[in-house]
Design a protein around this nucleic acid. Structure first.
Lengths: 254, 254
DNA sequence: ATTTTGGTGTACGCTACCGCACAAAGTAGC
DNA sequence: GCTACTTTGTGCGGTAGCGTACACCAAAAT
């Protein structure tokens, strides 16, 4: 069952890799390289050829679209439920988005060539990746809806919740300036929204350190978008949370 | 090469089906049923089980998210470059979007069971579908960006261009009320934006009949989003436009 | 200890868009 | 032709978010 409230058990693992049968996992192991990703690092630039695929463990990667005039908007976030580099198996090789490390941490990195040559052979992996792709689609769709209809206050709550779900702690290291780039709004608008949340005792922050004090409060303030994404991610990647190993069994046959 | 301006040769075909090798095509033929789809028909409702997959020929299908309060927003459009029902091969079976016929016409329909059992066997098909999925991802991402940053005027232009690209004529049968539901804005805002375009001689319309007089004009007025989507669709589905049959060759090996 | 830098708060006018209300003009049914 | 209904036009006050400018404060650098 989808757990909307808070306590998704955090694990020092990437769920896609973790959900694979043990034998596949061990065969993949030699290709996996655990790397540290510092905040702000650009892992991929729009239109580039992707050299590595990343499976976040305890970091968050943001997919941003950067407009011609330099302003940006976050399209989706990738945590230990997913991967960066779907375009490799979708076939397009490149995408129009920039990928930035939104929260520092580590990830498994795989050479793009190895990924295509080696990982593609494992049907179980493909199936997982496709499920994840659908979760990603849902997230993008909800981002579109949210951008259209909901207030900055609500969007900020949603954004923090999406981040929290992918993080081991309740602390976000993130300035309001950076958040405003993600949301595609003015920094001042974030200041105002964050101020309200602090007044309500839902968060406390200072100079780039945000502490979430009342997660249910955040969930009450945000729009329906968060719940939709959360529910869908839990549905599509249940093994990511509590049902490891059964992913392949639920799959379609090719 | 991507053709941004206008003249994408229209064909009475669905490009995904068309791009398949002849032998695969003929094997699929018995499963395909050509159906007429009237304007406004709801082909899929959020969360439902999908009974049929649709490959538009000369109709347009809109993916909408409908909010709890009833207001809506278009997430993406599907024409003869694509299909409705990606969740079947992505593995999720359902999605959170409603699919509505935005422009009446015909489409190939396939029973969902047949689709999964039969179509899944053809690797060429999977590869095409994955490419299309990436085009869809791009479109959703751009919708998110556009909703965040661009004016209703620009969004209306983008919306009309996306429709035109999927239609054999320069005429859109669509009331301003319906457009406003797609864009997720007030009907009056559409009236105003459309009025401007009419004054500029770019379109003319009356009571649900829109005629595009100056397509380059539309392209000049819209935001960068349209070009990004167009370029990416042309890149990912080149066989859709002018290079039929070579789709499978460019593919990754599984 | 002082300066520099980066992060946050506040204020002000502006614009795009909203919600609402209602008028006008086409279209369809009888 | 008359009526009923759809579609489009217009006006008006309200507001969320923008752009800009600047002040303040904490942390880091020297």
């Amino acid at each position: 069952m989808p757990k909307l409230s808070g306590t998704t058990a955090y694990q020092q693992k990437n769920y896609i890799i973790e959900a694979l049968p043990a034998d596949v996992q061990s065969r993949l192991l030699p290709d996996l390289e655990l790397v540290k990703l510092p905040l702000g690092k650009i892992l991929y630039e729009s239109g580039e050829i992707l050299h590595h695929v990343y499976f976040p463990v305890d970091c968050i990667i943001s997919l941003l679209y950067v407009m011609e005039n330099g302003s940006s908007a976050e399209i989706s976030v990738i945590g230990n439920e997913g991967m960066l580099g779907t375009s490799l198996f979708l076939g397009g090789e490149t995408t129009c988005n920039r990928a930035v490390v939104q929260s520092a941490g580590s990830a498994f990195r795989v050479d793009a060539k190895h990924f295509k040559a080696e990982f593609g052979r494992h049907t179980e992996m493909l199936i997982l990746l496709l499920s994840y792709t659908q979760a990603l689609l849902t997230q993008m769709a909800q981002t579109a809806v949210c951008n259209r209809h909901h207030s900055i206050d609500q969007q900020l709550c949603r954004w923090m919740l999406l981040s929290l779900d992918r993080l081991p702690t309740n602390n976000l290291l993130m300035t309001q300036e950076l958040i405003s780039n993600m949301l595609g709004v003015r920094r001042e608008s974030v200041t105002e929204a964050a101020g309200k949340l602090q007044d309500l005792g839902i968060i406390s922050y200072q100079r780039g350190h945000i502490k979430v004090l009342d997660r249910p409060g955040l969930e009450r303030m945000t729009c329906e978008c968060y719940a939709v994404e959360k529910k869908e991610t839990d549905r599509l990647l249940p093994e990511a949370v509590n049902d490891q190993g059964s992913a392949a069994s639920r799959a379609i046959q090719y």
